[in-house]
Design a protein around this nucleic acid. Structure first.
Lengths: 159, 159
DNA sequence: CTCATATTGAAAATGGTTTTCAATATCATA
DNA sequence: TATGATATTGAAAACCATTTTCAATATGAG
């Protein structure tokens, strides 16, 4: 799996007349070892731990490259950070995002996908990509929230 | 309708202990007169035409205020600009966005909404908001594109 | 091994948005 | 209507994630 990714990158670089570098290999290596939805900053932290010589700009550049190579997917949720997902799972999936703790859950729903295709078709639209994001409170945060609320006097707060 | 919006704003300001100002009224006035999905820049252009004294920062601040007041909704598509929609249509709707010409089409699909609610429920998620965006080519751009492509040799392209 | 050129790292630039701050406007109260 | 506490404004500076610049360096074809 790890092997496959670096081979994939190698092939892409060769095809594009680009060069294979230590930095690219190292970043890919760290990237594939991390979980999903890694922000560039998180990734940079981890990369730097193993390879202190690598600069911020290189991480940005490499993630763009991996995206072009089909090894990563860019995600932009509402928090202003670009995140990357390793492209390994075949199926398209969407996200549930907790607005309180930031947790990101994934889901797939074939029926929704079909309905989206229907909508596109009706509008003579040729789909390139789509994003479905549901923002709200995860179970844990709902419980925390209601615990907090019950401590308060009443609703109205000036600040 | 126009009347209603300014009354709504007035009530909101009063409720929050904020002040009614000429600028806020003027911006709201221009905003409600424009179509959907107005970017801040577009809005500022129009506002300035009628009221040259109003600054960029005030437009930004006022749109945030209108959003808090429930008179506007913020939209962030993938082009990096914040857009605002006047909150008049009752129903939630989603967007088809042409990646070539930037056209934005709206659609509603009750069945998709239901399925989203199901997904949330299954994940013990309390929904606050959601966004569904379909990116692709609108009918017109598909035609333009294929016209361009037909000049080319065949499928495979290096770049 | 050489050389053309792709890549890197650090720092500066970018660009949409937000904040700062002194001047001004609003509005409750007298 | 005048007063004063405070919210608001406009211009410019700051923010901040991301991109670009540029001189130094690494890569890989020949």
């Amino acid at each position: 799996m790890k092997k496959k990714a670096s081979e994939h990158l190698m092939a892409y670089l060769e095809g594009q007349g680009l060069k294979s570098t230590r930095q690219r290999d190292e970043i890919l290596d760290v990237f594939t070892s991390l979980g999903r939805h890694v922000s560039v900053e998180e990734l940079y932290e981890k990369v730097r731990k193993a390879h202190p010589h690598i600069g911020y700009a290189t991480v940005y550049r490499t993630m763009k490259l991996l995206t072009d190579a089909g090894l990563a997917e860019e995600r932009r949720f509402e928090d202003g950070f670009t995140r990357y997902e390793y492209t390994s799972s075949a199926a398209h999936h969407d996200h549930l995002i907790c607005t309180r703790c930031g947790e990101i859950l994934e889901f797939e729903n074939e029926r929704i996908e079909e309905l989206q295709a229907d909508v596109a078709r009706k509008n003579h639209f040729q789909v390139q990509s789509h994003k479905l994001e549901i923002y709200g409170l995860c179970g844990a945060c709902q419980r925390k929230k209601s615990r907090m609320d019950s401590g308060k006097t009443n609703g109205k707060m000036t600040e």
